[in-house]
Nucleic acid binder design. Sequence first.
DNA 1: GTACAAAGTTAAGCTTGCTTAACAATTAAG
DNA 2: CTTAATTGTTAAGCAAGCTTAACTTTGTAC
Lengths: 221, 221
Amino acid sequence: MPTISKENYLKAIFSYSTELENNASTSRIANHLSISSSAISDMAKKLSKEGLVKYKKYKGIMLTPNGEKAALKIIRRHRLWELFLINVLGLDWSEVHDEAEKLEHYSSDFLIDKIDEFLGNPDFDPHGHPIPKKNGSIPEIPNVILLSEVETNNKYELIRVNDRDSELINYLKKVGLKLSSKLEIVDKVNYDNSISVMFKKKNITLSKKVTDNLFVRLIEE
Amino acid sequence: MPTISKENYLKAIFSYSTELENNASTSRIANHLSISSSAISDMAKKLSKEGLVKYKKYKGIMLTPNGEKAALKIIRRHRLWELFLINVLGLDWSEVHDEAEKLEHYSSDFLIDKIDEFLGNPDFDPHGHPIPKKNGSIPEIPNVILLSEVETNNKYELIRVNDRDSELINYLKKVGLKLSSKLEIVDKVNYDNSISVMFKKKNITLSKKVTDNLFVRLIEE
DNA sequence: GTACAAAGTTAAGCTTGCTTAACAATTAAG
DNA sequence: CTTAATTGTTAAGCAAGCTTAACTTTGTAC
Ligand SMILES: [Mn+2]
Ligand SMILES: [Mn+2]
Ligand SMILES: [Mn+2]
Ligand SMILES: [Mn+2]
């Protein structure tokens, strides 16, 4: 039974180890969790002893199959709670992440399954992230492109948003963008890497900071 | 901001200090929380420093107005969660207490108010306990009698159950008793203090252990 | 390759919330 | 009242999870 702290470490390691290198560096995790890097080294040893992590000094941290299973379990809880809070209690897109960040550690398997069932075993959370299934499998993710890397004149649908940045989400709300919003790329501005898009018949400009955190899918005409 | 541990102490102190003496003894709290009594003495000092508790060595612990406010806040959370889990997710009478025992510490005021609103600002939880209001007031409690102290031939309605004893609740479920069940007292057996009641046209016997944990209200004919 | 900067680790120490063991106060019995 | 049992407190110590500071390894620039 991992503690709360360990659950958070596992989630953080997971979120970096699945990227390019498949191994999370001390500093990335430290930064992600806002904890000193010495604490990370320390914890890496403990998790390693418990068989949740593979750790070689100075060489980064990687989840073992058991560690990944544990991480997916927490991520499942997080995302089910997020969806539940929105669907049932009417919380806002930008409000659920922080609540879920706590609730994920304090709900029994039994309760989580009830929530899953209540929601109809959903595949995606409110930010477009896949919800791991009870058995640890992950719903298939559609072909996804960073909005900063799209091509001019194509049409795209917004399908994923970084949920850790509530300011980003508030910005999107202000602009009117939601999941499944349709965007047509009008121009890619070389100077500042911003993108000009047609959205609901209006032309808006999105900065690199924004487009680097939004994922879209090409819409076939 | 009390920690989780402190929140539990405050709840425990509250539950004893509101009884007869208005002051909770070290050993009762220790027993209640399954924690050594030396830890209680220790914590009493800390809570006292924070102004949540009045503590005189060897003389017991009493909540200050601030401490009571804090305790009621947690109790409110607990009871709202219990009702919510039953009403919305279909959990059972006997299942909600343990879940609520954790969730009560990890929900924002905002979320709790949403739940309260969703449930229609209910006055009582699934075990018949009053749910403190946001402003700290407590819904008026009907005139309540211990089932072990009722009089023969009268009719009573079951209106409160000790929620900490899930075995008791399972027993009640087996027998078919719920909140608002109507009971007619047939006989009080002097020998073992059990009570014989008429319930749904059947005669059942309830032991002292059971009747000491059930509260009823006299039904006027 | 050397030298220095950046990243990572180890060491020492702190806080919270517990434990057990030794000691002190209170209470109950006679 | 005195004494013994009960109850409560203090002291010492431990584990978890952090911190900062000192040290080590690794990577980069020349
Ligand atoms: Mn989230
Ligand atoms: Mn999400
Ligand atoms: Mn309860
Ligand atoms: Mn209850």
